[in-house]
Every structure is written in C-alpha cells, then in structure tokens.
C-alpha cells in the first residue's frame, strides 16, 4: 500500500487558470471577509476576557462620625486594598484623598501645621483639597486622587471601588 513518494520537483503542477479570474477574486474576497470577521470576533472575546472589567461597583464604607473629626484634622483611613486614604475636614467640608502622589507613586504626608500634603520624594505640595500647589505634581497639573465622601446625618462614609 505504501510507496515512496516521487521526487518533489517532478510533480509541481502549474496553477490552474493562471492567476485570478473574477469569480476567483470574488470567492476569495468573500472567504477572507468571512474568516476575518469571525476570527476577529473570537479574538475580541478573548481580549474582553483578558481585560479586567472596569469596576464601577462602589462599596460604601463607614469612616466615623462628623462630630469626631475636628475641623482642620486629617483622619488616616486604611482602605480594604491596603492603601491609605486621608479624610480631611477642611474649609470646604469633608474631602477624601488618596495618599499616593500622582507624580511617581510615593506616599504623601499630612502636615497639620501648614495644612497641606507633602510628598517626600520630590517635594510635591498639595493643599487640603488635594490640588497640587508646588513641585513636580504642580508642574504636571496632577492633583491627589479623590474619593467620594457621603455624609448621612452625623455619619461619614466613603464610596470606594469594590475590591474584587
């Protein structure tokens, strides 16, 4: 049943019809279109799988009582994901600010005397609303990330993105 195949060079057949006729071109186009649309869709599903869904779900977390957060004070609060959020009772009300400097990711410190945040890495300064006032963050125009503060009666809550 099995025989040795003939030398490869001896049986290369010439292309039939010599190049593309119109029907050939059309069928080729339809085929390529079908293939690309279907496989790209499958690929798209794959990308959807790989890209984590943007978490829009917020989780409301109890921080404390307004009566216990004196004006001018900053309350450090460790979020469930581990990073610190400062809740400021500033002149414009309650503000919740990330302690991660938008410049290169160092952690900022609250200076209660100057009522501002200072980043030790490149001497960035932010006011109590988290607006960059000096240093590289101010040059970049990048402020401290803020979180939504929700006050119900005497209770202060933070709306944090849910940790998966």
């Amino acid at each position: 049943m099995a025989t040795r195949p003939v030398d490869a060079t001896t049986h290369s057949t010439p292309a039939r019809g010599g190049g593309m006729d119109r029907r050939g071109f059309l069928s080729n186009a339809v085929m390529l279109l079908g293939l690309s649309v279907s496989y790209l869709t499958a690929f798209g599903f794959g990308l959807r799988y790989l890209f984590p869904s943007k978490n829009t779900a917020k989780k409301r977390i109890f921080i404390g009582l307004t009566s216990e957060m004196l004006p001018g004070s900053a309350t450090a609060f460790r979020a469930p994901d581990g990073h610190t959020i400062n809740v400021i009772h500033g002149p414009t009300g309650f503000r919740a600010l990330s302690n991660v400097c938008p410049h290169l990711g160092c952690t900022v410190k609250w200076d209660p005397v100057g009522t501002e945040f200072v980043c030790p890495c490149h001497d960035g300064h932010f006011d109590a609303d988290g607006v960059a006032t000096a240093g590289p963050p101010a040059d970049m125009g990048a402020n401290l990330p803020t979180f939504e503060v929700f006050i119900e009666g005497d209770l202060v809550f933070l709306d944090l993105p849910e940790v998966a």
């Binding site: 069928s27 339809v30 085929m31 079908g34 293939l35 649309v37 279907s38």
Partner: peptide, 9 residues
Amino acid sequence: RIIVALLSF
C-alpha cells in the same frame, strides 16, 4: 472558498 465563507458565517 465559498464553503469556508459559509462556515465562517
């Protein structure tokens, strides 16, 4: 080719 296209569909 048409079969490929149909299967793709």
